[in-house]
Design a binder for these strands. Structure first.
Length: 566
RNA sequence: UACCCCGUGGUGUAAUGGUAACACAGGAGAUUUUGAUUCUCUCGUUCAAGGUUCGAGUCCUUGCGGGGUAACCA
């Protein structure tokens, strides 16, 4: 894959705006972006879109550019260090680097507090003694204006005193808040005197017990952006109505080093998956999956463990584009991106997922030969390897049909097939057990067909299948992952208050013991393979142990035959 | 029955007043020691109606459809 983190994406409305800003000489030619996660959950593929955008922009505009990683840790009741660590790991894994520009909104608490006092002094903020219920009740509705708080006219000196006492911890949670004084009649609810500070007697993961009041996102975010000199603050569509408030703060607070500009883009939606943190958290907490990094999860850690590559995720993010249209991206596009990458880079190996024994009746007992297999047909430099072959083999059960359907050109009674890189075999006998199940196939091999030789006057078998030597094969665990949900839109299909978990795919994982070529026993954790004719697999970084690898199926190979039948 | 945003093939995007194109998916074929890959061909598109213009996917109006917004969450 030619994709690199710095590869420029096509022009989208954000990049056009930045180009226009640059053309007008704004920001002294700098492009400074930020990725601002709240450390209250794991990052998912939707965040990857934002990460690629923000860090990508910085790379595209080097050297007068950078992207900050800033944790939006303004709500101590929800945030944890565990999430901070995973987020940093995920961003790095995607191939991006924030350098020394790692920040926390909590680093600015003292400055943000001073700005709040400034707003109070200007008569632009006031302490409200109303209860949360009263505030909600007087905010009005979508179709009717709100009412002024009885405390709205409080003089600045009194507000200042009260606000300082809020900070000092003199009041209980919920007793008072600081509100911006804007417009209770605004059609934009965010401008109806939004709460900008609330009392929270909570321990913060970084500031400890130093604070009794914490700023709200709407207040902290624009000012943090401004403090860091962010030029372009890019977020998702649901913050569009917050933009006027964002701008109000940037314009009304004096002494800000920068004037960032917020723009919004559509978040990513993927078929057959849910993306909200709340829903993902539920899948984890209620044990529907093994954890945040379960390979079926759309989290970065999940898809990493599944075997997706950073390059594939980046290519995907580039392909989906950037618009304000609320779209639903086909999961197949993600799969296409990872196949495209892995096809070029993954080592090939032979593994039989559902083994069926084959005895070569004309192959001498006790004889073992070693066949040369190509490691990667897409890259000859990866060379070849030797794989043992003997009288008894395993082939994929799917590669034999006792009563073949039309168009099936693998092994059938009396039929011939090529064992890839070895020779052709003909099936003479189907052996069944007491239950009538096929237990073994008795075949003969043709020594004249070695190494792909096609003797004259001899019809060429249409099928080529993979195989492993029964005596040499190693048992390995393979986890066959499939879609987590059975419907394209689990949230939508669940309806208003329906439960999306009823659309969970009961077959989202199947664990089998595969028969693999011997070298696979030594596969190191975290290695990508293509099991020929089957799919791409990744040695599970968590559950693999030396000598006992566990293989996660990243994605199956496309199957033209299965498709034709459907 | 408020305000904001958005409507281009099945899906995701491009076309910046001048021949509607690319990718994925689908279909057909060629090649193939992976029914993979690769290659060729193919299917199929501007929400609607008016208006402006020599010319509209693009600009205007109205309608329709979708999304968002009433945490002391982010």
């Amino acid at each position: 894959m030619s994709d690199t983190p710095a590869a420029p994406a096509s022009q989208d409305f954000i990049r056009e705006m930045i180009a226009a800003d640059l053309a007008q000489g704004r920001n002294d030619g700098w492009v400074i972006t930020r990725f601002p996660p709240e450390p209250n959950g794991y990052l998912h593929i939707g965040h990857a879109k934002s990460i690629c955008l923000n860090f990508g922009l910085a790379l595209e505009h080097a050297p007068k550019s950078r992207c900050h990683l800033r944790f939006d840790d303004t709500n101590p009741t929800k945030e944890e260090v565990e999430y901070v660590d995973s987020i940093m790991e995920d961003v790095r894994w995607l191939g991006f680097d924030w350098g020394r520009h790692l920040y926390y909104a909590s680093d600015y608490f003292e400055k943000l507090y001073a700005f709040a006092e400034q707003l109070i002094g200007k008569g632009l903020a006031y302490v409200d003694d109303q209860t949360p219920e009263q505030i909600r009740a007087t905010r009005g509705t979508l179709t009717s204006p709100g009412e002024h708080s009885p405390f709205r006219g409080r003089p600045p000196a009194e507000n200042l005193d009260l606000f300082r006492r809020m900070r000092a911890g003199e009041f209980k949670e919920g007793e008072r808040v600081l509100r911006a004084k804007i417009d209770m009649a605004s059609p934009n609810m965010n401008l109806r005197d939004p709460v900008i500070y609330r009392i929270l007697h909570a321990h913060h993961h970084r500031t400890g017990d130093a604070w009794r009041i914490y700023p709200m996102y709407d207040y902290a975010h624009p000012l943090s952006d401004a403090l860091e000199g962010i030029t372009h603050s890019l977020c998702t569509l649901e913050f569009e109505h917050h933009r006027p408030l964002y701008e109000w703060l940037v314009n009304n607070v004096d002494g800000l080093p920068g004037a960032p500009c917020q723009r919004e883009f559509a978040r990513l939606n993927l078929t057959f998956t849910v993306m909200s943190k709340r829903k993902l958290l539920r899948l984890v907490k209620e044990g529907f999956v093994g954890g945040w990094d379960d390979p079926r999860m759309p989290t970065i850690s999940g898809i990493r463990r599944r075997g997706y590559t950073p390059a594939a995720v980046r290519a995907f993010c580039k392909t989906i584009g950037l618009t304000k249209y609320n779209s639903l991206t086909d999961l197949q596009l993600l799969e296409h991106c990872v196949r495209e990458d892995l096809n070029k880079t993954a080592r090939r190996a032979y593994a039989v997922l559902r083994p069926l024994k084959v005895v070569l009746t004309n192959y001498p007992e006790g004889r073992v030969e070693h066949v040369e297999l190509v490691n990667n047909p897409e890259n000859e430099a990866e060379g070849k390897r030797l794989v043992p072959l003997s009288r008894e083999l395993y082939i994929e059960a799917d590669d034999f049909m006792e009563e073949p359907v039309p168009g099936f050109h693998r092994l059938k009674p009396g039929g011939e097939v090529r064992l890839k890189f070895a020779f052709c075999i003909i099936c003479h006998e189907v052996v069944k057990d007491a239950a009538g199940q096929i237990s073994e196939l008795r075949c003969t091999y043709d020594d004249t067909t070695r190494h792909g030789a096609k003797p004259e006057g001899r019809p060429k078998p249409k099928g080529t299948i993979h195989w492993v030597s029964a005596a040499h094969a190693v048992d390995v665990e393979a986890r066959l992952y499939d879609k987590l949900f059975t419907v394209e839109q689990p949230d939508g299909a669940a309806g208003e208050d329906g439960d999306f978990t009823r659309f969970l795919n009961p077959h989202s994982v199947e664990i089998v013991t595969a028969k693999a070529e011997p070298s696979l026993a030594q596969a190191r954790a975290g290695t990508h393979f293509q099991f020929e004719r089957v799919g791409y697999f990744f040695t599970d970084p968590k559950d693999s142990t030396p000598g006992r690898p566990v293989f996660n199926r990243t994605v199956a190979l496309k199957d033209g035959f299965a498709k034709g039948k459907a």
